[in-house]
Amino acid sequence: MNNLLDTIAKHFSNNLPFVAYRKPNKSLVTAFLLKDNSLEFTSEFTESGFVFAPYKKEEKAILFSDKKALIISENIDTQEKSLRDDIATSLVDSVRDKHINIVDKAVETIKTSNLQKVVISREELVKLNPVNILEIYKTLLSTYKNAFVYVWFHPEIGLWFGATPETLLNLKGTNFKTMSLAGTQVNINKKDIIWKSKELEEQQLVTNFIETQLQPISNNLIIDKTETINAGSLLHLRTKVSGILSEKSNLKELIRALHPTPAVCGLPRNLASNFIDSNEGYSRTFYTGFLGELNFNVSKTAIRETALFVNLRCMKIKENTAYIYVGGGITKDSIAEKEWEETVSKSKTMKRVLN
């Protein structure tokens, strides 16, 4: 067994907080190991360490300070696994009907109001045998090479796993990078990938929002051409965005300008947020929040770096039950049945790992 994985397993058995993570297309896994169960928060994002932030921007983010943690890193090369497709399902008609009804209501609201897009999500419960965190984490590492793959634990908050394909932002000095990510289809290894107008429009809405939000606080904003990326068994549309943070702006302003993005909330942001609060019927907590390195001295130079990722393709595990979170963007052209099927496809990301 790898020394780092063995160490986090012991930390978990001792009920102590930790996070282990690997950035996309890398082999280096880094772990923050805390010595006690105290909770530290940040709302200004001036501290240094690992941040785990909820969906609601009004709520404080949890900080694992680099000053209070033992930090270890190790290159872990994992062989890609072929996961079984015979996934045990926990879906029931009532869950399906509820989701379809909410999507229908969202489409009607979009057609009769100023709401342009809203992201509707749900949680799916899967019963587990006693949890082996190393097996789950190693499977995530080997299956989702191009994702930010993490396991995060605090005894007062819970155990979370994720393999997210979406960067919220990277900031090195004053240079930042971000992306808009929207549109989903199942990857069936076709050479010619066709995107429908619904997905293309949804992607453009997200890109336009990011451009509008960043222009007042940045210089030299560059928006790349939209491309198709592979995220496990799914394909997404992605547009890369980069720029330089203006002298009068700071990291908190950059985070608040982007989070929550239309890819996880909707447009206009306040109308979409109100619709979500009134209709989803559960608390997202850290799903569609963000996490990652905050003002971290990665290269041991004077330049601090921040690398934050949107908490998608994730699950919480509590008392041998996995709470898997999935959702999709709804526009005026959305068809409720197809939106339901998209969430079913997305849920397989985590359900196959649990097999």
Rank of each mutant, 00 (worst) to 15 (best):
R256Q: 11
E227H: 01
L16K: 13
W160D: 10
C265G: 10
T226W: 01
L91E: 02
A20S: 13
K67M: 10
L125C: 03
K23Y: 04
S347I: 03
K225D: 15
A106S: 13
K127A: 14
S246P: 00
S73L: 05
V186H: 01
L159W: 00
S347R: 11
L267V: 08
S242W: 01
E227T: 14
Y325N: 08
V103N: 08
L200K: 15
A336V: 07
S283H: 10
R256N: 14
I87P: 05
A302P: 02
S142C: 05
F12H: 14
K248E: 00
R122N: 10
Y150I: 04
K177N: 12
K98Y: 08
F161P: 04
L63C: 07
P262Q: 10
L308D: 07
K177S: 11
Y325P: 10
S283G: 02
F64K: 05
V107L: 05
E166F: 03
D85T: 13
L267C: 10
T349D: 03
F161L: 06
F32E: 05
S27R: 12
L115N: 09
A263R: 08
E337Y: 03
K346A: 04
S94F: 10
S38Y: 03
I217V: 00
L294G: 06
G232I: 04
T288A: 14
N132Q: 12
V344M: 12
S273N: 15
I324C: 02
T239P: 13
I324W: 03
K316N: 15
F12P: 06
L251V: 00
A336P: 02
I223D: 09
I87F: 01
F290S: 14
E319I: 01
F32H: 07
E108G: 03
F41L: 07
H154Q: 06
N170F: 09
R84P: 10
L294A: 05
G327M: 01
Q204C: 03
T178M: 02
K35I: 08
N170E: 11
K338S: 09
G292M: 14
W160I: 14
S90H: 09
F153L: 02
N170W: 03
L125H: 07
E44I: 06
T261S: 12
V126E: 12
N187S: 09
A61E: 09
N208R: 14
T288Q: 01
V298K: 15
K318V: 08
Y144F: 15
S121T: 11
P262M: 11
A272Y: 03
T184S: 12
I255C: 02
E342H: 06
R84I: 13
S113V: 09
Y150Q: 04
V149E: 01
L169A: 04
L214K: 13
K191Q: 11
V206I: 13
H236I: 10
E253Y: 00
K81P: 02
S197Y: 06
